[in-house]
Every structure is written in C-alpha cells, then in structure tokens.
Amino acid sequence: MPKPAKGNTPPPGNPAQVIVDGAVKTNEWQLLPLDEETAALAAADLPPGRLVLPLPVWQQVKDQLEERRHEVGVWLDSDETADQLGEDARTLPLVAVHFPAFADGRGFTTGRLLRERYGFTGELRAVGNFMRDQLTYLRRCGFNSFAFQGEQAPEALLGSLHDFSDSYQAAADQPRPLFRRRGLA
C-alpha cells in the first residue's frame, strides 16, 4: 500500500480570528494537537469550552461526550478520510480538515465527501497551510470556515472567496454542472 506523506508538518494552530461564512470572527474553538498527552485523554479529562479533537482522540471519547457533543468537533489530517467519520458526520458541530502544505490536495476530496456523501451540515473548517488563492476551490468543496496560519489580516482575504462567479462542475456549492444548467437537462 502506498503511504501518504506525513510528518515534519506543523500541527494546525489556533489563530485568534477565523473567517466563517464570509465574515471575520473571533475563533471560539480550541484545536488540540495530536501528541502523547492528548492521545491519552478520556472524556472526563477534556478541557472546558469548544474543542476540536484529533480523530483518534475523538474516536476514543465520542461515546462518552453526552451533553458536550454540541461543543466537541474533530479534525482530520490529510491522510484521514471522510468515511472514518461516516454517519457521525451528521451530528458533529464542526469538522476541521488539516492541510499540511497547500500542495496537498487531499482535503478537497474530504470536504466534498463530508458534505455530499456523509450529510455533514456543521462548520467545515480548513486549518493549516492552505492559501488565499485556494479559497474559491475550498468553498466549492464545502468549506465555510478558514483558520489561517499566516500573518495576513483575514479581512484582506475575503475577496478571494469568490474569484469565479460560475463554474463548470457540480460540487458542494453547486448541485448542477453547467451542462445541466445550460437549459439542457
């Protein structure tokens, strides 16, 4: 089996501000990295507030979350796939997808599948090293939330969410491909 690239990539951080639904907002979610400490967490040990857990941790605690379910989300690394959430996607409040490098495009597929196949309707957040010029594509793949790692002021990036006013393909943002909308369906 081919091994996807991993390691040597910075874990996603927690910027103070994020873009959600086209506006700059205060980041209310704390993303926990995957390390020895978090790997050993049980549901009772989780810090308070809104949390985004690494997939293995979330899998460990998900059945004990009870009244915290609405404030615990999960993040997928780029080699983790949408089917690993499966039916749980329907009830999760937030899923973050990590882009270890902007050239690693696996997260685009993850986004689409979460939205289009697994019925995820919560906040879909891109985290890590994606870049401004990918925002239109990310939005089209179902992302509505963007936690930028870099220095740029998030306001400056908003314009890039809509670099294109139309598109040829169907995707998470557009249920019908252009060939069906040309009055040909």
């Binding site: 690693d104 495009g105 685009f108 597929t109 689409r112 239109t136 594509y137 089209r140 793949c141 040829y168």
Partner: peptide
C-alpha cells in the same frame, strides 16, 4: 477546468 477538488493532485 477549475475542478475544485482536483487542482492540487
């Protein structure tokens, strides 16, 4: 063309 999922293969 501009396939959103496949621009970073």
């Amino acid at each position: 063309t501009f396939h959103p999922e496949f621009a970073f293969l």
